[in-house]
Amino acid sequence: MSVIAMRGLRKDFTVRVGRGRLRREKRTVTAVDGIDLGIERGEMVGYIGPNGAGKSTTLKMLTGVLTPSAGEVSVCGLSPVPQRTRLALTIGVVFGQRSQLWWDLPLRDSFALLRHVYRVPAGAHAARLRRCRALLELDEFLDTPVRQLSLGQRMRGELTAALLHGPSVLFLDEPTIGLDVVSKQAVRSFLAELGGSGDVTMVLTTHDLADIERLCRRLVVIDHGRVVHDGTIEALHARYGSRRRLVVDLDAPLAPDFAVPGAELVALDAGGHRASFDLLSSVAGAVVAELTSLAAVRDLALVEPDIEDVVARLYRS
């Protein structure tokens, strides 16, 4: 059975739009428009989409914060809204913008309080905290009030707070938003390590596709509240025809009408000395062999397709 199951999940919001000074019009906006999705135990799923696509709304329905307008949803066999408090004991939630920590207390105190809130046995709590302290390098700011922490430090604190009760499902809403490169790396490698065990199911929304490339084998793209892609990153590339690019520096200039099977010449720079090809098949060797018969190849580079480009194209379509 799937750890997370959604069937025809839907969320409508009624918004009042100002028309003139006093008149207001009611309008229904559909944030999530019929999502069917199953996520298995131990999966790490990247949940992406443009702003307003319905990512956070879905996550909030999965965690019992929002009541779905229609459809079915179950997490760990529980129905999120009616069984919210029971569900909360088995899931961990990091909403990048909403803190679970006590603003005025040292990080250490927040962790101690959360042990009571989640009713965690002291031994298990200490063991998990020890692991997080080591992996996330919390020790240097454990005694600092949360309000004085940097964003990166606070996010590491939030992650720890979400894990101290040993959840089997972790929901992360933009866990790397606003972080510097070093903090991003720290958070990513921590999540990778956590997911590596295969016990924790993880769903993360993000705008940083490097998070997905690093962490998630499965990618769900939503737009206007619907799933537009569900599969691996490779499948996404294949579907949207993103190609690897071969860039070759030659000793002699190449003729602009040069043609080679399996590749397409897309650019010719440096007076014909640098040629760029889009590879139609996945074999670069044949193209390189063809080129070396014409002129000496001084240097070559193979550029992997950029997921950002693919996703940007996906959003626009």
Partner: peptide, 13 residues
């Protein structure tokens, strides 16, 4: 402000 989110993800009423 949406602070309610944080309240609702805790295992308490």
């Amino acid at each position: 402000t949406g602070t309610m989110d944080a309240v609702l993800v805790r295992p308490l009423a």
